[in-house]
Amino acid sequence: MINNSIRELEDNETYAVVDTIPYDNGTYVYLANIRDSEDFCVRKQLKKESETILVGLDNRDEVDYALQLLVQKNLAA
């Protein structure tokens, strides 16, 4: 059974999905390394035809934007 609350990324480390925030074109997925929570990153989940893919963000500005969304969401909560 696939557990989509954790993902193994290209560095062969296991990351837990910490949060997900939908935006215009898909959903930002925030991941933290389960062995070192200071090691975290952001990916985006996109739907292309019948396929759902997890890809990197376009540039640093998009990373900033995604992280701002995370901070805003969690400070407001």
């Binding site: 989509n4 990153c41 759902t52 997890l54 990197g56 963000l57």
Partner: peptide, 17 residues
């Protein structure tokens, strides 16, 4: 770790949660 790279593409079955 977050910016675009070909190796970062992963197919997901279902949706992450």
């Amino acid at each position: 770790k977050s910016t675009q790279d070909g190796s970062m593409k992963q197919v997901v079955e279902g949706e992450v949660y």
